Computed example of a mutant assay.
Amino acid sequence: MAVSWAMGDLYGYKARYAVESWQEEPSLPDLIVIDEAIADADRALSWESENPEYHELKARALYYKALVKGVDDLGKAYLVSAKQSHDSAAQLRPQWPYTWANMALMKAYLAEFDDEFHQALLNAVQYGPWERSVHLTIAHIGAMSWTSLSAEQKSIIAANVSRGLKHNYKGIAFNLDAYKRRNLICAYMHRDENQQRFCR
């Protein structure tokens, strides 16, 4: 068992280092680098298949591959695979908000606005109400999917945006303005100092 943990951690560290380094880059990584990270995540899982972090890392690498391939084209298959890996991670670690937020994001890209999407959104907010990464991911979901959301989902996202403004104003604003959704989401936000500043 100790050997399995050690080998899993060896490959898991390589995948984690790669994925985290991509977040700091202004452009998307090369496909070769992405495939190496996916392979490392698979190797880590071959040693420790019940480790939710390795499933999450594989999902995030698959998401980058989908972005490079084009989410409306060849990348869709990788979004489906990423969703499945997020689901595996969620089964193993059901109170991890980042997994639920990322699951909702994959389903939003796939236009799967079903009960599973709604529950993932609720879980992300419930388990990570003050997590910066969750705020950004949910703001992204709201911005790209606003016209497909129910009134309840819009209210959930608006409340999340309001919380996120206190900790990451620029990041939230960037996500919403990229899709020209600021005014629409402002209409669902409770009036307070942050709302007035953001919606002015």
Rank of each mutant, 00 (worst) to 15 (best):
Q195K: 06
Y179A: 01
A173I: 05
D192T: 12
R182Y: 05
K170I: 05
I172T: 08
Q196H: 13
M189Y: 14
N194Y: 15
Y169V: 03
R197C: 02
R182S: 15
L165V: 02
A187S: 15
D177N: 09
N168T: 05
G171I: 06
G171S: 10
L184I: 07
Q196I: 12
A187R: 11
F198R: 13
N175Y: 07
R197F: 05
M189Q: 07
A173N: 12
H190L: 11
A178G: 03
K170S: 12
E193M: 10
N183Y: 08
K166A: 09
D192M: 06
H167I: 02
F174Y: 09
M189K: 07
H190W: 12
R181A: 15
I172R: 12
E193K: 11
Q196K: 11
R181T: 01
F174P: 00
R191K: 13
R191A: 14
R197G: 11
A187K: 14
R181E: 02
Y179W: 07
L176S: 10
I172M: 08
L176N: 11
A178P: 00
N175I: 01
H190R: 10
M189D: 05
N194S: 12
R197P: 00
K170P: 00
L184V: 05
D177G: 00
H167W: 11
N194F: 12
F174I: 06
Y179I: 00
G171L: 04
K170Q: 12
Y169S: 09
A178C: 04
Q196L: 15
R182D: 14
R197A: 13
K166D: 06
D192N: 14
Y179K: 15
L165I: 03
I185Q: 13
C186Q: 14
